[in-house]
Amino acid sequence: MTVAAGIGYALLALGPSLSLFISVISKKPFLILTVLSSTLLWLMSLIVLAGVWRAFLPLKSTTWWPFAILILTAVIFQEGLRILFWKFYKRLEDILDAFADRLAKPRLFLTDKMLIALAGGLGHGVAHAVFFCLSLLTPAFGPATFFVDKCSQIPFFLVSAIIALAFVTIHTCSMVIAFNGYAEGNKVDQYFVPAVHLVAGMVYFNICAGVLYGCGHPGDGLETGSINLPPDITNFVHVD
């Protein structure tokens, strides 16, 4: 049961991207490399963010604005990274085209460019899911589950899996949209992507801060005064 639950959470978060990976990405080695490098880039961004914010942790959970700043900085940083990624991709595209000319092969098709963007986005999304959901799932394979105070109705693993699924989708699609926007100079697309990212971050933030009706009943979040618990044993509830 517990192993099944753990696998279920993992598949909930990563199932779609897994099938995308198998059906589209894994056929072309270059796309696998793109996924890997994009994942690494996202990991490095996370480490930099963590290094910056490490001094301020743990945040007081009674006030909400540090969290807002945290999310804001994270989103801005990652969107900046996306532009960097785009610059890098542009150079790569030139190199690939030159290479194709030399091999007397056709240049990159539009679908190829989109595939590269998809792979890059998938890398970002998978990194997000892996670090925010999958790496916290280890206890889910054991004989218990875990609730955080902000959401006392749904197990934490389930919530994080669902959120991770949403973010995988957002990251994957927004990379394609952003690259297309950059390539065509479409301002709407270019600003749409960071906006979606920010809104998504803020919505979850609002949910857990209790501004919106979050998980469970209204007002679930704000009344809790001490949420700085690491996942220790007091928060675990046996299920079987």
Partner: peptide
């Protein structure tokens, strides 16, 4: 390098934010 960075820097950060259901 990544092992120690992850262990020292990233893990408290991720656990801290994720247990607040904050993901971005």
């Amino acid at each position: 390098i990544f092992y120690f960075l992850t262990r020292l820097l990233m893990e408290p950060y991720i656990v801290g934010t994720a247990t607040h259901l904050m993901m971005f």
